Amino acid sequence: MKRAWTMPVLLLLCGTAGAAGLILRGSTGAAVGLLLVILLLAGAQSPLVFPRSVGALEAQRRSAADGRPVVYWRPGCTYCLRLRIRLGRDAGRLHWVDIWRDPAGAAAVRAANRGDETVPTVVVAGRPHTNPDPAWVREQLTG
């Protein structure tokens, strides 16, 4: 869990240091602008923008019951963020597994990607798809 927050915390620390430097130079407006941008970037890199993650075994069980895809992701992944944003409200209909929090999820991703932890990996009907187009993933929800 600690690793998931590393990037957002580092962004906030660096942004705060940069803003402090701007304030010392008398550029309060620029400091506020920098802090706002850093806050947005840190939020986008945090686990908060993703639907609540479940364990890989629970996600697989739920997927078998309702037929919805399982998305394996990790915080800080720009492709995962792209998928999440492009899915919009439909993202909540998928089963999300944070591979940094769930070793079984990381193992499932490595098995699907020749040993690499490439995310997002979306499993539909038992078949993995690495970094699929978000429009295709949305179609899997309606089909």
Rank of each mutant, 00 (worst) to 15 (best):
L81Q: 03
L11R: 01
T130D: 13
L36G: 05
W73F: 14
S46Q: 00
L57Y: 12
G33K: 07
P75K: 07
L48Q: 02
C77M: 14
G76F: 12
L39C: 08
R74Q: 15
G88A: 07
A44H: 06
H129T: 12
R61Q: 10
T6Y: 12
N113K: 01
P47I: 06
R138S: 14
R82M: 09
I99A: 04
D90L: 07
A64D: 08
R93W: 03
V123I: 09
L13K: 02
I99L: 07
E139T: 14
W96Q: 02
A20D: 02
L11D: 03
G67E: 12
W96P: 04
P47K: 04
A19E: 02
R68I: 07
R62P: 03
D102Q: 08
V49D: 00
A112K: 00
R74G: 10
D102G: 11
G18E: 02
R89D: 12
T142Y: 05
V122L: 11
V123S: 05
D90V: 02
G55V: 01
H95C: 06
N131D: 15
R86P: 00
R61F: 04
L40G: 05
G115R: 09
N131K: 11
L11Y: 08
G29M: 06
G88K: 06
V119Y: 11
S53W: 01
L24K: 14
A125S: 15
P69T: 14
Q60S: 08
E117Q: 05
L81H: 04
S27C: 05
L35R: 03
E139G: 15
E58R: 10
R84A: 09
D98C: 06
L13A: 14
P103Y: 07
C80W: 11
A91E: 12
R74E: 14
V70E: 07
V122C: 13
R68H: 14
A104Q: 02
P8V: 13
V119G: 13
R110H: 01
Q45K: 02
G26M: 07
L57P: 05
V109T: 04
G143W: 08
Q60Y: 04
N113A: 06
H95V: 10
N131T: 10
R52S: 13
L81S: 00
A91I: 14
Y72T: 13
G126Y: 15
A44S: 04
V97I: 11
Q45F: 05
W100C: 07
L57C: 08
G105T: 06
G18L: 03
G43P: 05
A65K: 10
N131R: 13
P134G: 10
